Simulated assay, not measured.
Amino acid sequence: MKRLVGKPVHDPEVQELANKYLQASLKYVGEEAMHAFGKLEDEEIEDFQSMMASPYTEEEEKWLDRVIEYYMIQNGMYNLNSNQHNGK
């Protein structure tokens, strides 16, 4: 991941990373938990994230968030018009 940070979110290699990241996340925490996380408000997400150590810098995490959001939009998993928790 660190090698790809800063590349455009639509780069095929970056999107392959997003796919692998989401698949690993689903396998690790389970699909039900992932859906529950998607319904949390920003403050709840920040509280949850603060309890977990991250191997990424703040900049890397922001980039990864953009990558995952783009991936989910492109794959019909996320609708900006109905998303309430990111203010869009």
Rank of each mutant, 00 (worst) to 15 (best):
P8E: 15
K20A: 10
I45L: 05
E43F: 04
V29F: 11
H35F: 08
K7V: 08
N81A: 12
E41K: 14
I68R: 02
F37C: 07
A24V: 05
H35L: 05
D47H: 12
N86T: 10
S50Y: 09
E58V: 01
L22N: 03
Y70Q: 12
P12K: 13
N75G: 07
N75S: 07
L17K: 02
E61P: 00
Y28F: 10
P12N: 14
N86H: 13
N83T: 10
K2E: 11
M52Q: 14
Y28I: 01
Q49H: 09
N79G: 05
E46L: 09
A33Y: 12
V29M: 12
L80A: 13
A18C: 05
N86G: 08
I68H: 02
S82E: 15
W63D: 00
Y71G: 00
V5K: 06
E46W: 07
V9W: 12
H10P: 06
H10S: 15
I45S: 02
E58K: 07
E31I: 08
V14D: 00
D11E: 15
N79Q: 07
N86S: 06
L26V: 06
K39E: 07
W63F: 05
Q84P: 04
D42R: 03
T57V: 04
A33C: 03
S50F: 11
E44S: 06
K62I: 01
H85W: 14
H85M: 07
Q23I: 00
A18L: 03
E46G: 00
A36W: 08
I68L: 15
D65R: 10
N19Y: 14
Y21V: 11
K7A: 14
L40A: 03
E31W: 04
E31L: 03
N83R: 11
E31T: 10
N19P: 02
Q74P: 01
G87S: 08
F37A: 11
V5L: 07
T57N: 10
N86P: 07
E59P: 01
L40H: 08
L26A: 02
L40I: 01
Q74A: 15
H10W: 10
W63G: 03
V29D: 11
E13D: 14
I45Q: 02
S50R: 07
E69D: 06
E58P: 04
